[in-house]
Every structure is written in structure tokens, then in C-alpha cells.
Simulated assay, not measured.
Amino acid sequence: MSASFASALSAAHEAAASQHYPAGTLYIVATPIGNLCDISLRALHVLGLVDAIACEDTRHTQALLRAYGIDKPNAQLLAVHQHNESEAAQNVVRRLQQGERIAYASDAGTPAISDPGARVVAAARAVGIPVVPLPGASSITAALSAAGIVQDTGFVFTGFLPSKATERDTAAQRLLAEPRAVVLLEAPHRIEALARSLACLGERPVTVARELTKQFEEIATVPAQQLSAWLAAQSSRTRGEFVVVLHPAPPAEAPAQDLRVLKLLLAALPLKTAVQLCADITGQPRKVLYSAALALKPESTEDS
């Protein structure tokens, strides 16, 4: 164990031991995506408490446990990864039904999002076994929090685009029609190919987050069509794991003739009524017309 985590493990037991951890429960444990200090106190306590840990890679998880000073024999680590998850989930469920506490941890971050774990959770819930999530590190939310996106439309998590060039290009073209922020993941050996596919998005900004929480973390925002050039500017920029955040599309603008209709309606009707009627007449999205109405008649916000 690293001496620097001795006090953390002690603090974890002191802070979390008095809480309730029922037997026969599956605990979904988020682990660091790079920086070992991003583990939670509750995660440390539960990883030490459980009867077994189902994990994506037993060797990786064993190294993580030892770094924190948690002693688990190899027999208590159950390999549950993308190639055996359906079958292994049934073994996990049987042990849970016998009253064991079992944690699931993927190699990094929050399980069952892009990593394995969802089938284990589904199998447990299907037979009424309680599932308790222990929140923590996530590359998805980490990248979003640093992207500086100011919007209220939410985001779409897409994960990895197809590996074949034609399918990947088609998927990238479909993103042109998605107005919300989109979160993509990519591996180092495919990041340049992804950048070429995203060039079709033109000036739409993308935030690329590389090696999040690690020593050589790098976060930059560039137009989609310049992402390839940004990667090529330094050889180190194609190394590591990537999260790519496509920023929301700029708000659409209503044509001049539709704005004229909206202005006439605003002169005689409350804002909401004018917007709804204009949408019915012109076919323009209500949200686009509402934004335009606020700009045309800001004093009418009180009647909206």
C-alpha cells in the first residue's frame, strides 16, 4: 500500500462504517479514471467489506485494491467482462441470493455506462436483488464540466462511433441533425480517423479531452473541421484515451417572412399565444419562435 493512502483508508472506515450495507446486495462502485485520489471514502469501505468483487479485469482491480491497502485474495475477484458478462452475471446472482455482498467495478470510471456491468445489474434487478450505486469518477461528466457549454437542452451520450470508415462517416453525418451536445469516446489508435469523420461538422465547436485526471491531461476546444490539424500539431496529442464533446448547434433562426408574421401577432396577442399561433401558421419550431419573440418584444415576458 502507498503510505499516502493509509490515512484515507482509516478515514473511510471511520466515516462509512456506521452506515448500513445490507447483505445480498449488489454494489456498483465507481473507480478512478486515472488519478487514484478520485476514489470515494464509501467506495474504499465497501470494497473492503464485500464478500467478492466482480470486475472487468481481475489483475487491474487487484492492483487498485493493493494501492489502497485493501487485502482481497484472488479467489474473491470474479472476472466479469464484455465477453462473458451474460454467463458470469448468473453466477453473481446465485451468490447474491445466498446472502453475499458483491461489488462490481469496471477498470475505470462508473460501470455499466460504456463499460460492462449493465447485464449484471439487469440480472440482479430481474430477481429482486437490491442494487446500490456508489457514485464517483466518470470521464463523461468530467469532460462536460470542463467544456464550458452553456445550454439547457441536455446532452446525448453516443460513446464510440463505428470502427469501419463508411459507417463512421455516416454516423458523423447524422450528428449534423442533432442540436444537442453529443459526447463521444475514442481510443488513441482511432482518434485521427474520428477527427476526419467529424470534419463534416464544419465550424461547430468540439472539446477534446485527453488523458483526463492523469499527468498529461489536455483539454482544448476547436472547430470540428480543425480537429485533425490540432491533433497533428503535437505527436503526443494522439496518445491516451479521449472524450470528444460536440457542442450544441447554434440556435436556428426563423426566416424573415415568418418573423414578420410573429411581429404582427405580438402586437395584438400575449407572447405565448402569439408564438403558438405563429408556429401553427409557419411550421417553425416553437422554441425558435419563442426566442425570436423575446428579442422582438422583451417587455412581454411578464405575460408569458
Rank of each mutant, 00 (worst) to 15 (best):
A122N: 13
L47P: 03
V121P: 02
S40F: 05
D169N: 13
H83K: 08
P248V: 12
E253T: 09
F5K: 11
A63Y: 01
F216T: 07
A15L: 15
K272N: 14
A15C: 09
V131P: 00
Q215L: 15
L26I: 03
L36Q: 06
Y104G: 11
V183R: 05
R260A: 15
L144V: 09
V288G: 08
L184N: 02
S114E: 03
E87F: 10
T153A: 14
R95M: 06
L269C: 02
Q76G: 07
A12R: 01
A177C: 00
Q226K: 14
L294Q: 14
V93L: 09
A103L: 09
G154R: 04
L271N: 04
A23V: 12
A267E: 14
A8V: 13
L264N: 13
D107F: 06
V93T: 11
E100G: 08
T110Q: 07
G109M: 05
A23M: 13
R237I: 07
A52S: 12
P32C: 03
A75D: 11
R210S: 02
G202P: 09
R286T: 14
V93G: 00
Y68L: 06
A6I: 15
N35L: 11
T301M: 14
I28D: 04
E302C: 04
I219H: 05
A232I: 00
P188F: 12
Q173D: 14
P73W: 09
V120A: 03
Q173K: 10
T166V: 14
Q62Y: 14
S4G: 05
A147T: 10
P250D: 11
S4A: 14
F160E: 06
R95K: 14
E211S: 11
I33N: 11
L64K: 02
D38R: 00
P285W: 09
L201Y: 06
D38W: 08
E56W: 09
A112K: 08
L246Y: 06
S304M: 13
E299K: 05
Q97A: 12
P248D: 02
A105F: 10
S197G: 12
G202R: 04
V261M: 07
N91V: 13
T273I: 13
S7E: 15
A17K: 12
R174E: 15
A103F: 10
R180G: 00
L134N: 01
S138A: 13
Y27V: 07
S236K: 05
D152F: 07
A256R: 08
L65Y: 05
L77K: 05
D38G: 00
P32I: 08
V150S: 09
F155R: 07
L41G: 02
Q173P: 02
I33W: 11
R66Y: 09
F157G: 10
A137D: 00
V80Q: 08
L262W: 00
A295Q: 15
I102C: 12
L41T: 05
R260C: 11
R42K: 08
L185H: 07
F216M: 10
E85I: 09
A137R: 06
A229G: 12
A187H: 10
R174S: 10
L212M: 07
V46N: 03
R66D: 02
I129D: 01
A233G: 11
H60V: 15
A124L: 07
K297L: 14
E56T: 00
S138N: 09
T61F: 04
V50T: 02
I28C: 06
L185I: 07
A292S: 13
P248Y: 03
F242Q: 07
Q276Y: 10
L78I: 13
P285H: 00
D303H: 10
A43S: 01
I28M: 15
K263W: 01
